[in-house]
Amino acid sequence: MIEIKELHKSYKMGANSLHVLKGLNFSIKEGELVAIMGSSGSGKSTLLNILGMLDEADTGDYTLDGVPIKNLNETKAAKYRNKFLGFIFQSFNLINYKSAMENVALPLYYQKVPRKQREEKALKYLTQVGLKEWAEHLPNELSGGQKQRVAIARAMAAEPKVLLADEPTGALDSKTSYEVMDLIQNINDQGNTILVVTHEEDIAQMCKRIVHLKDGVIVEDKKVEQVRAAQYVQ
């Protein structure tokens, strides 16, 4: 599903250049649930943003679902993002003047799904994350955990091939974190490929594979015995 080879990325700041990703290689198959770990500044978000086509690598190859992602113009990138990818951000990134349902329906708007179908679908995914009753609420009327669940519903609504989550539980307490992870595991069970950037060991253990980044290189890439989050959620 995802394949990267010799991926390099540096940030230029004035005369200096910060080499953040120093030649990454890995491949992720369909249906995997991968945790990306590493200390702060190790380049986790940078990697995820490149995979999400929100940013571009300097050199190296990136193939997504068999499509080489290279020198895309913004229009193409937008279309691929819409078709292939769902994002879950640490800071939720909901549009604050749109209701939960409208937020969830937004990616479908860009897929040119008719309004009625959009709303039906949005409601379906909101129901899946347990927020059916909150569909008409604005984001600032929701708790952090609820916001993240709306964001997850939004990421799923477009039915993407890959879900990219950058510290989805970073702003949540552990109980809410487990609820979110439970959701993510369920989505993964349905066959979706998911990448989760996290700091927390227990969250990582709920994935099926852990990729460890350090100073821009992969130091460890191991399979783990998945801990189900459901047991912590009543």
Binding site: G52, A78, K79, R81, N82, I95, Q111, A158
Partner: peptide, 13 residues
């Protein structure tokens, strides 16, 4: 606009 683009809004849109 960044959020919209992440969700698939093209520059033209």
């Amino acid at each position: 606009l960044g959020i919209r683009k992440a969700l698939g809004a093209t520059p033209k849109t």
